[in-house]
């Protein structure tokens, strides 16, 4: 419903050489790490000048998700939502990030607003962003161990006991 009527119905299967899919009417471009910065830069030139959101998903328990042909599923995905204010359209980029080498180039120089978002992704998922101006934790205490939103990180709930409850 938040999609724009301007969106191209016959969205091409590729855009700048990267596979493009349609997710419930929303345009999603799938990127690898090697072309991440380059495509992001091109998208800015195309009008997607505002980065509204940058987050990540840990697909540890869900590696068999559907991805377009040619995209190798990795454990982590960084999801970037871009907005074109002029033409009122959105595009979402899903970037595969491997577990063993969880590093992505930072978007800071392109979208300074991603500074806090990338720190949050680092804090919650342990994905580092190279050339980030301030690569530190943001939400958890500085001496915290682990990255809470990873799927192999426990929720950390303690069992609730109702004292005096009939057993």
């Amino acid at each position: 419903m938040t999609d724009t009527p301007h969106e191209d119905e016959s969205a091409p299967a590729t855009m700048h050489g990267c596979p493009v899919t349609d997710s419930r009417g929303q345009v999603v471009i799938h990127l690898g790490r090697d072309r991440y910065l380059e495509v992001m830069r091109v998208l800015v030139d195309e009008g997607f000048a505002m980065c509204v959101d940058l987050t990540a998903v840990d697909y540890l328990d869900y590696m068999d998700r559907s991805l377009p042909a040619g995209v190798e599923p990795e454990r982590f995905e960084v999801v970037v939502n871009l907005l074109d204010i002029g033409q009122r359209r959105r595009i979402r980029a899903r970037v595969q990030v491997s577990e063993t080498d969880a590093v992505l180039p930072s978007l800071f120089d392109l979208h300074p607003g991603t500074e806090a978002m990338e720190r949050e992704v680092f804090d919650m998922f342990g994905i580092s962003f190279s050339d980030h101006p301030d690569p530190s934790r943001i939400l958890m205490p500085e001496d915290w161990i682990g990255h809470p939103l990873r799927k192999d990180y426990e929720v950390g709930s303690i069992p609730v006991q109702f004292k005096g409850a009939p057993t």
Binding site: M1, T2, S23, R24, Q26, V28, V52, D53, V57, R65, S66, V79, N81, R90, R92
Partner: peptide, 9 residues
């Protein structure tokens, strides 16, 4: 169903 969406208001 499986999938992913981003909705903004």
């Amino acid at each position: 169903p499986e999938g992913e969406v981003y909705v903004a208001i």
